[in-house]
C-alpha cells in the first residue's frame, strides 16, 4: 500500500508540473460544468424556451418525465442532455495523465531503475492508474455537484432538480464514471507502450472518446435515449471491457515485456 501511495504522489508531483496536463485536469471539468449551467440559465430565463415545446422532444423521452409538466419536462431534458458530456471527463483526464506518465518514463528511461526494485507489476499499474483515476473521478464528481447545485439555484421545481439525484444519474456518475476512468487508463497504458510521444499517445487514445461523443450526438438528435436501462447496459459492458483491457495492460507491463519489446 505504501508503494502504491508513493507512486501516486510521485506521479502527481511530476505530471501536474506539466502545464498542459494541469490545464486539462482543471479546465475540462470546469468547461463541462459551466456549459450546461449556462444553457440552463438561459433556458430558465426564457418564458417559452424560445418557442420550443415538449412536442419537439424525442417521443421516448416523455416516458422519463413522469409527472413533470411540459415546461419542467423540457428543463429535465436539457439537464439530462449533459449527462453524457460529464462522462467524457473520467475518460479524457486519466488518458492524458497516463499517456504523459508512461511515455515520460520511457523517454527519460526511468522505468528500468523502477523495475529493478521489489515493486510488483500490479503495484506500478495500480499506482499509475489511480494517479489518473483519482483526479478524473474527483473532477467528475465535483463538476456534477457544482452542476446539481447550480441547477438547484436556477430551477424552481424541486422535482426537476431531484431528477439529478435519481438512479440514472447516480449510476452514471458514481458507477459508470469510475469504470470509464479504468477504461481510459487501460487504453492509455496499451497505446503508450508503443509510442514515444505523449501527444501521439493522447491523440490515439482520444479515438476511444468518440463513442461517447457519438452517444451525445445520438441523444441530442433523438436517435437514442439515455435511460436507466441504457446506463446499466453501459456499466455492464464497461465491467467486461475493463476486465479484458486491464488483463492486457498487466501483460504489457511485465518487466520482460517492457525491457525487450517496448519501443
Amino acid at each position: 500500500m505504501d508503494r502504491i501511495k508513493a507512486i501516486i504522489v510521485k506521479e502527481w508531483r511530476e505530471v501536474f508540473k506539466n502545464k498542459f496536463i494541469f490545464f486539462t485536469v482543471s479546465f475540462l471539468p470546469l468547461m463541462i460544468t459551466a456549459l450546461p449551467l449556462g444553457i440552463l440559465y438561459f433556458a430558465t430565463g426564457s418564458e417559452n424556451f424560445g418557442g420550443v415545446t415538449t412536442a419537439d422532444l424525442p417521443p421516448q423521452f416523455s416516458t422519463l418525465c413522469g409527472e413533470l409538466s411540459g415546461g419542467d419536462c423540457m428543463l429535465y431534458y436539457i439537464v439530462t442532455q449533459f449527462l453524457l458530456l460529464f462522462m467524457m471527463v473520467p475518460v479524457i483526464i486519466p488518458m492524458t495523465i497516463a499517456s504523459y506518465s508512461i511515455v515520460g518514463e520511457k523517454t527519460t528511461r526511468t522505468l528500468e531503475p523502477l523495475l529493478v526494485t521489489p515493486v510488483s507489476t500490479l503495484e506500478i499499474l495500480i499506482g499509475k492508474g489511480l494517479a489518473g483515476i483519482i483526479p478524473a473521478v474527483s473532477a467528475t464528481w465535483i463538476g456534477y455537484l457544482l452542476y446539481a447545485a447550480g441547477a438547484h439555484i436556477m430551477v424552481d421545481n424541486p422535482a426537476v432538480v431531484g431528477k439529478l439525484f435519481d438512479p440514472l444519474w447516480m449510476t452514471a456518475i458514481f458507477v459508470v464514471g469510475p469504470l470509464l476512468s479504468i477504461f481510459g487508463v487501460s487504453i492509455a497504458v496499451m497505446i503508450s507502450s508503443r509510442v514515444n510521444d505523449p501527444r501521439i499517445a493522447e491523440q490515439i487514445s482520444g479515438i476511444f472518446v468518440l463513442p461517447i461523443v457519438g452517444l451525445f450526438i445520438g441523444q441530442t438528435m433523438g436517435l437514442i435515449l439515455v435511460n436507466q436501462q441504457f446506463i446499466l447496459w453501459m456499466a455492464g459492458i464497461l465491467v467486461v471491457l475493463d476486465s479484458v483491457l486491464f488483463y492486457f495492460a498487466v501483460q504489457i507491463f511485465q518487466r520482460e515485456t517492457i525491457l525487450s519489446r517496448w519501443k
Partner: peptide, 9 residues
C-alpha cells in the same frame, strides 16, 4: 543502469 533514469521534475 547505463542511463541514470531520474525524475527530472
Amino acid at each position: 543502469p547505463e542511463a541514470p533514469g531520474l525524475y527530472d521534475a
